[in-house]
Nucleic acid binder design. Structure first.
Lengths: 142, 142
DNA sequence: ACCAATATGTAGCCTGTGCTACAATTTGGT
DNA sequence: ACCAAATTGTAGCACAGGCTACATATTGGT
C-alpha cells in the first residue's frame, strides 16, 4: 500500500466528517430547544444557527430524510430516538472537548469557539484518551 | 446582545473555517511536494488528496485566484510568498496539534487522522495554549 | 520521427448549503 | 369575526467541490 493512500484516506474521512457535522449541530440544537422551550421551531433554529429560515427548513428536511427528526407542518420539529441518541453523543463530546481545551490552558471563550469546529473530528479513540486525560488531570490538580 | 447571537457567530466562524481548510491543505501539500520532489504536479496532488485530477485542477485555479499559487500549463504548480507563508503556518500548526494529542494520550494513528480535521479550527489563542502546554509537559515528564 | 502512454486541461453534471423572494398558514389583537 | 403580523413553507438562484467524459499537450520508447 503506497504512502499516499493513507493520506488520501485521511482527507476523505475529513471530508466525510463535514457532511455529518451539520446534522450533528442541528440535532444538538433541536434537543436543546426542546429541553429548554418545549418546542423547536424552524425560525428559532435558524436564528440560533445564524442562517435564514429557508436554509434551516431545508436542512431539517435532510434530518427527516435521514431518520433523525420528524415534523408536522406548523408544529415544530422533534427528534426520533436516533436523533436523540445523536444529540446526546454530540453534547457529551462537546463538553468533553471544551473541558480538555480548558484543562490544557485555552481561554474559555476560545475553547467554546474552537470546540464548535473541533468536536466533529474527534474519533472514538481520541474521545477515550480525552476522557482518561481529564480524569488524570482532575486527580493531579484538583 | 442576545444569547443566540454569540452562538450564531460561532457557527458562522466554523462554516467560514471550512472554506479556508481546503486551501490550507492544498498549500501544505504543494509545499511538501515541492520540497520532496522539486515539483508539484496536479496529478500527484490529486492522488495524494484522493480526488480526481479534474477536481484538483479546479481547486488549484481557486488557489491562483486567491493569490496563493501560480502555474503555467504543463509546468506544475508553485506557491506565491503568501502561499508559502500559509503552508508554513499550516505545517507548524499541524505538528503542534499532533504533538498535543499524543501528549494527552491519543494513539499516534488516531492523532494523525484527527489532526487533519481539527487543525483548521484552532484559533491563535488555542495555538498559544497548545504551545505552552507542550513546553510544560515536556518539562514535567521528559 | 512517430506513435502510444501519460499528464493536463475543459465541459457538463450532481449534491449540499447558502440566499432572496414569494406564497400560504397560523396566531393574536381589536 | 376579521385583519395584520409572524411563522412556515416553496421556488429559484449562486457557489463550491465532487465526479465522468472528452479534448489537448507532452514525454518517452522504438
Amino acid at each position: 500500500m503506497p504512502a499516499e493512500t493513507s493520506q488520501a484516506r485521511r482527507f476523505g474521512k475529513t471530508r466525510a466528517a463535514q457532511a455529518q457535522a451539520l446534522l450533528e449541530d442541528y440535532a444538538e440544537l433541536i434537543a436543546d430547544l426542546l429541553a429548554c422551550d418545549g418546542e423547536a421551531r424552524p425560525t428559532d433554529i435558524a436564528r440560533r444557527l445564524g442562517v435564514s429560515h429557508a436554509t434551516a427548513i431545508k436542512t431539517i428536511g435532510r434530518l427527516k430524510r435521514e431518520g433523525l427528526a420528524t415534523s408536522l407542518p406548523y408544529r415544530g420539529v422533534f427528534l426520533t430516538p436516533a436523533g436523540e441518541a445523536l444529540a446526546n453523543k454530540v453534547r457529551t463530546r462537546h463538553r468533553l472537548v471544551v473541558a480538555v481545551l480548558i484543562a490544557i490552558g485555552v481561554p474559555a471563550e476560545a475553547a467554546e469557539q474552537d470546540a464548535e469546529g473541533i468536536e466533529h473530528h474527534i474519533s472514538p479513540a481520541t474521545l477515550r484518551a480525552f476522557s482518561a486525560f481529564l480524569k488524570q488531570y482532575a486527580g493531579g490538580a484538583p
